[in-house]
Design a binder for these strands. Sequence first.
DNA 1: GTCTATAGTCGGATAGAC
DNA 2: GTCTATCCGACTATAGAC
Lengths: 212, 212
Amino acid sequence: MSPAPLPSTKDRILDAAELLFADHGFDATSLRMITAHAGVNLAAVNYHFQSKEALLDATVARRATPINRRRLELLARYESEAGDKPVPVENLLDAFLRPILEAGCMVPRLMVRMLYLEQKPVFKRIFQRHLQPIVQRFTEAFGRSLPHLPQQEVMLRMQFVLGAFAQLMSATETLHNITEGRFPALEPSRGVGYLIAFSAAGLKSPAFENTL
Amino acid sequence: MSPAPLPSTKDRILDAAELLFADHGFDATSLRMITAHAGVNLAAVNYHFQSKEALLDATVARRATPINRRRLELLARYESEAGDKPVPVENLLDAFLRPILEAGCMVPRLMVRMLYLEQKPVFKRIFQRHLQPIVQRFTEAFGRSLPHLPQQEVMLRMQFVLGAFAQLMSATETLHNITEGRFPALEPSRGVGYLIAFSAAGLKSPAFENTL
DNA sequence: GTCTATAGTCGGATAGAC
DNA sequence: GTCTATCCGACTATAGAC
């Protein structure tokens, strides 16, 4: 038998921070909210982490590392399957989106927040460390699979995909609000197929005639 | 000659609030930041508006009203042009997206923030007052123009479009950061054609086989 | 209408006992 | 490692002079 399955104080803080940062954002989440939700003492945050910003960093790092490893595994498998031919964009989308949508944590919502809106330097640092290398790797792959597009249009369309992905993260709540309940609850991981189909059609459409 | 072209204190506050709320979000923007940027006294905010939340409401209301009027004008024109046939989705997208992208103000960024992330009741009230009726009107129009899709998939794909639109709002900065300058500056209003082409292809793709 | 001054609250971070 | 108590700064909002 494993002796102590209870999560440590440090993990309880990380769990609460992940939930609250994702739901309310960095500024609107106080350390007092986090420690109350985790059932730990306020001073424990500054003991285990050094500051609120360092706690945010640790929160993201805990989840991003395995998600990105899984993304690169899937990408390598799909590239190996394709041999010399370009990888179907559906497969590239699957490799990029499925690991984060199926991670079963709140960090995707947090990622979305950073991607769009947060301006503080700490978010830029986190973005550059945990997302930029992966995005660059996938941009090259998408470029090879969409040879009819200039590279800048590939990058722009990938931004559209990221935006659609972000919206899927909150689609359930948003649609539920808009339709006053006529839209059923949709778990983000169940919507990934819809998102891939929509995005693949958009990515494969002919190049836009004007110049960027 | 018009006597006093100088903006009033009230308008200067609204201008500064629009800019700062859009860039930094509601919680991260203090009234002191706003009054400093506007060059007015701190107490002027609570005199002209009653509270920080009421200021946010006024900031959105000032822009949303003309944008939504323009959206309905364009929608009516396109529906009149189409006669009995369904309106092309490209036209529906144009009627919905172009007015807000060409408004030349920061409220689109603010809308995006609300759409995705903000949880406070004040944002839900603003959303319901200024966005929900328009979204409902356009959902019906998209449903008529996409008869091959079940209504729930129409709503889900519209969410994807909203997400792509949101990303376009910050695409310039994001791409500039990711590519370290290799991506040229792109004004959101110049990207609307790209967004419409991408979204139309996604919307028109065949229905996803599974059930929602 | 516009200012100064301040009340009252809440935030992050820390000191020091245990 | 975990607690209590507290410092100090920033915030929203308001009172009251002009």
